[in-house]
Write a protein that binds this DNA or RNA. Structure first.
Lengths: 338, 338
DNA sequence: CCTCCTTGTGGAATCGATTACATGGGATTG
DNA sequence: CAATCCCATGTAATCGATTCCACAAGGAGG
């Protein structure tokens, strides 16, 4: 693999001149530039990004730590982040935390070791030492979807979706269809999205004159299995709920598993709805009503904010809104978007 | 962010000694080692991976270029690759080609610029100049799932799944259920998996005394839309097929879209099966029969082969086998695995 | 007691780029 | 015509690590 000095030798110039051509510095004579470019082409030379990063102290790389790659919401997010970054000539390194704090820390550490220019995180848990360290070290950082609180973390912009109004619409929809005993499979209390969705659900119920009793709140962990366990508990209740809202799509999958395993039917025996819309919801039996996040916009806004920070501009938090997509899983023949 | 010389100063030793401690070189006096370690802890020092890579000429990083992150098969593959790599102390940088050759080349180029130690590719297309260049440059390289041919590429190990016998089982299953007019939504002819699945399907049909007529082979591109288009063409035929086999899960999704849009029913009007099994297939209406690849094993085997190459050991191609998972989409009440 | 070897440590070169500073020659200007 | 400036280029320092080589001190062996 040729280095810059090989190019210099072949073009009969110094390495400084080659570097100037490559970074198109103005003061290089046109014919010299030609010679250098020719040498570059002949040798198939590509600048060593490692060496360049060491010298310039920037890697043009963003780190993205997500909670779970297998969750379609996050893969879609990752994809839109990569797209947005590529457009601005940045690369993205993805770390999958699998909803495990220690894995999240592992990735933050590796990314910092690699001296990435900025960190985009959808945090898994409250107390991440590495994240605090990163913030303290002055690494540009942006939270996406979820966020955590902590010393030095209050200045970190948060790019997120506000689901309150869509959740209110969902409760409205459920009530209109005659459901009265609503339950929720919550996400981990350590995550903001976990708490927030429960709060929004509770407020919406109150607005419709309903209460959310403790045994209608199940603790899940955003994984399918937990959705299944919580649903089992719900259905074992003396008066089981007649509608279940899962705080993410994987737990909805688990809920469906359990409902079906008991020979019950959606929506006749129990209605089902989920936070996060994914392509497969159109094809489940029945199609699932969901609160849809504007994933693409979320990814783009995060990258914009992070790169603003990286390049020394101020960045602000952004809150987008979710919307309800009505399908058959709550009882109506067919709602808005099919 | 402290550098090695800060640690050296604080511990009252030279940078050479610090480096020796960090790479646990034997000849360092125990008390010196203690002092250095204490300084490291005090400063929260972490070695700069960029500088280290420049010097040692290795990054302990693998590049993984996949055809489409949104395809659950590939995210699962990516995840297992990352798991396997992490266990061996390697990181993985994922590039998503989105089934677009130019994006694939972009990623291969960026990864090479970063001087990754090895490249794991599931190639999108036949003629990738960068991939040939990478192979020629001597970068350790392994193909996973798909492969391409070309000058200097014949030595590249291929880690893949052989679907022939599972596809034969599928055809057997379809025939047993009375289907006779079988059609296939093929992948791009430029990909090996595209061609191979058609071949296997054709051979299996022949074995059961059936022919695969040209108008029962639809050209897809592994994306949902193409599955829909091809299915439309099938259903417009004077004598439409009574069973459709999609060569990947996204095209199966598209096929379902189209079938449902026409008010037809699976499996009564037309049976459906797919290559690649994914969790959602259990919950579609009806649950979809699929050929399942051992994705985790595929990822692990790829990493093992690639790291063998990276560390100078010889590596061999591996072929695993797929198996049929029977569900209701072809007509049976309920087969083996639900 | 002198020589030789071992052990622990420091100095300095090195990896491949970028960039501040130096330099020489030609053009501009008073 | 001399002084000045600018343009094009080269020399060398630098980024943060690793590692070869040199060297000093101490122990072993004759």
């Amino acid at each position: 693999m040729p280095a810059i000095k090989d190019v210099a030798r072949r073009a009969g110039v110094s390495v400084a001149t080659v570097s100037r051509v490559l970074n198109d510095h103005p003061s290089v004579r046109p014919d010299t530039r030609e010679r250098v470019l020719a040498a570059v082409a002949d040798l198939g030379y590509r600048p060593n990004a490692v060496a360049r990063s060491l010298r310039t102290d920037q890697t043009r790389t963003l780190g993205l730590v997500i909670s779970d790659v297998l969750n379609p919401f996050f893969t879609e997010l990752a994809r839109s982040v990569e797209d947005a970054a590529r457009e601005l000539d940045y690369s993205v390194i993805i770390g999958n935390a699998d909803e495990r704090p220690e894995l999240q820390d592992h990735h933050v550490r590796t990314l910092m070791d690699r001296r990435i220019d900025g960190l985009l995180v959808s945090p898994t848990d409250g107390g991440s030492p590495m994240m605090l360290a990163a913030a303290r070290a002055g690494t540009p950082m942006v939270f996406v979807d979820r966020w955590i609180e902590g010393e030095g973390l209050d200045a970190v912009p948060v790019i997120r979706t506000d689901g309150r109004s869509a959740i209110r619409d969902l409760v409205d929809h459920l009530c209109a269809l005659g459901h009265r005993r609503l339950a929720i499979i919550a996400g981990p209390a350590a995550t903001t999205t976990g708490r927030e969705r429960v709060d929004a659900f509770r407020s919406a119920l109150r607005e419709f004159g309903l209460a959310l009793s403790e045994d209608h709140i199940g603790q899940g962990d955003f994984q399918a299995d937990s959705g299944r366990r919580v649903t089992a508990r719900f259905l074992d209740l003396p008066r089981p709920p007649d509608a279940i809202f899962a705080a993410d799509n994987l737990m909805a999958l688990g809920a469906m598993d359990e409902i079906r395993a008991r020979g019950l039917r959606v929506p006749d025996d129990v209605a089902l709805a989920a936070f996060d819309d994914i392509p497969w919801f159109v094809h489940t039996d029945p199609p699932i009503t969901a609160v849809a996040q504007p994933t693409g916009a979320l990814g783009h806004a995060s990258v914009r904010a992070l790169i603003d920070l990286v390049e020394g501009r101020p960045a602000e938090s952004v809150t987008l809104s979710a919307r309800l997509v009505t399908r058959r899983s709550c009882g109506e023949p067919e709602g808005s978007t099919p």
